[in-house]
Design a protein around this nucleic acid. Structure first.
Length: 479
RNA sequence: GGCGGCAUAGCCAAGAGGCUAAGGCGGCGGUCUGCAAAACCGCUAUUCUCCGGUUCGAGUCCGGAUGCCGCCUCCA
């Protein structure tokens, strides 16, 4: 089956065909580490992670790169504000990014290149652009000549003439045209700098991505992603720089994820801590957040709200409850043996058919531009059918074998989405809670319902929920 | 002002012309339960913002209107 991806440049879905058969080189813009990562950064990272996982599941050998732009005006400003070095600001925020990334079960990238560690590559690329007439030095700065690149605007569908009206020139800049953008910025007094043919300075914003992506992935990347807000100017400028220098197609498939919005408020770091991942993960289960973000197609905008998260938490519990139920019913999966279709009754055969159908449905949904929302729908169908099967009569050995296959299907689909990765945590039930449960079991045995209910209410107030099953009483932690 | 996107049930959200408009949350009714919880079953959009058009047939294509959003050199 063909894997189709919506390509921003072509403005339509295209079949995914990598440059080198069986291998994929993909680059997702990480962040400029002036501040802590927020949900928006993580949505982009999850999108990239999902692309990577799906491609690997299809047998591709993937090199996945996410960069850190670790020097720029804002990082320097932040450092000055705090009286620390720019390296310190960058280091701290990179650490937080990786921490949030791990929490969300985003697999570590193959490489996390940093701009400051690729100055020679950046300088070389700028030199090539100057040599080819795409760039010029002006004072201590070097600028890209937008008018020298005929295709400028092809990604963002902008016309150079329209852009000219709104072009800005910062004080101190000496550009020939307002559209030209900086490749290299001369260092002012007290700013960090690197030596270059044009004097001491630092790279401009876009050039690091061109230099680093092509260094590790070659002149043509199979996949390049980031948020839609990067289409212009960032990705547009990357195309101009890269194709201007190499004369080759820079990226085969451009994928941009929709932005995360916040009810009422503008998404901004100054309106509160709510967006910082370090704060969000204090109150929200990371896996629930991931499920929530994947429940909407990656290209759509998504609203971030506690209400939506609470709904996602309820939905996640359906999976968790099923896994618990399957643990009880299946016991040791190892000893079950393979499904023998000869020995299946009608119920088992029906369930097996549903597993097969879900396999096809999941694959079709993911092949269609990674439609995780539709794919997750198939997961819920498996949950409902598994529960119905268990509730519908005795589970024979053949039934267990099919249920085991069903569970494997959910876990393998979940693996592609980065869900259900962590083993069920064996929660420690405190002594006092345990004794309350025991007291209630006693009260129930004595048919003292008033006391039993009182204890249940008390447990609930303390955050524990009871489930009386045929085999005994189970206790679960809520939130 | 320029370019682009979106508008589907109470809420969220799939749906690249044609089987009964996925799925989740919530609600209502039922089964199970001492009562609950979990789970299951049934119901919860005769209709897809509105108006035209193309077509044998449109939520899906085209034109227009309205509303919301993004980008137009800070932005994942």
């Amino acid at each position: 089956m063909a894997f189709r991806i919506h390509d921003t440049l072509a403005a339509r879905k295209k079949e995914f065909v990598p440059v080198n058969e069986g291998k994929v080189g993909m680059y997702f813009c990480g962040m400029t580490v002036q501040d802590e990562p927020h949900v928006g950064h993580m949505r982009a990272a999850i999108t990239g992670d999902m692309f990577r996982r799906y491609l690997e599941s299809k047998g591709f050998e993937v090199t996945f790169i996410t960069n850190f732009t670790d020097v720029d005006d804002k990082i320097i400003a932040k450092a000055n504000e705090e009286g620390v070095t720019y390296e310190e600001v960058a280091r701290r925020n990179i650490e937080k990014y990786l921490w949030a990334s791990d929490a969300l079960n985003i697999r570590r990238a193959s490489i996390y290149p940093k701009a400051t560690e690729h100055i020679p590559e950046i300088v070389d690329l700028i030199q090539v652009l100057i040599d080819k007439g795409h760039a010029y030095q002006s004072g201590a700065d070097v600028y890209f000549i937008v008018s020298s690149f005929a295709d400028y605007g092809k990604l963002s569908k902008k016309k150079v003439d329209d852009l000219r009206v709104g072009a800005r020139v910062e004080p101190g800049e000496q550009k020939r045209s307002g559209l030209d953008f900086a490749l290299w910025k001369g260092a002012k007094e007290g700013e960090p700098y690197w030596d270059s043919p044009w004097g001491r300075g630092r790279p401009g914003w876009h050039i690091e991505c061109s230099a680093m992506s092509m260094k590790y992935l070659g002149d043509t990347l199979d996949l390049h992603g980031g948020g839609t807000d990067l289409i212009f100017p960032h990705h547009e400028n990357e195309i101009a720089q890269s194709e201007g220098a190499t004369g080759k197609e820079f990226v085969r498939h451009w994928v941009q994820n929709g932005l995360v919005r916040l009810t009422g408020e503008k998404m901004s770091k100054s309106t509160g801590h709510f967006f910082a991942m370090s704060d969000i993960l204090k109150e929200v289960d990371a896996e629930v957040l991931r499920l929530y973000l994947l429940s909407t197609h990656y290209r759509s905008a998504i609203e971030f709200s506690r209400e939506r998260l609470a709904e996602a938490a309820e939905a996640m519990d359906r999976f968790r409850n099923l896994f618990i139920a399957l643990d009880e019913v299946l016991g040791d999966r190892e000893s079950l043996g393979p499904v023998n279709s000869e020995l299946l009754g009608e119920r088992e055969r029906g369930l097996l058919g549903i597993v097969t159908k879900a396999h096809n449905g999941f694959g079709e949904a993911m092949d269609d531009d990674l439609n995780s929302a539709r794919a997750i729908g198939h997961l819920y169908e498996l949950v409902r059918e598994a529960n119905a099967f268990m509730a519908g009569g005795e589970v024979t050995t053949a039934g267990k074998q099919v249920l085991r296959d069903l569970e494997n299907a959910i876990r393998s689909f979940g693996g592609i989405l980065g869900l259900f990765g962590k083993p069920q945590e064996d929660l420690e039930v405190p002594e006092d809670i345990q004794s309350l449960v025991a007291a209630r079991v006693e009260a129930r045995t004595a048919r003292n319902w008033g006391e039993a209910d009182r204890i249940r209410d008390e447990l609930q107030a303390r955050g524990w929920v009871l489930e009386d099953k045929a085999g005994g009483t189970r206790i679960k932690r809520v939130r």
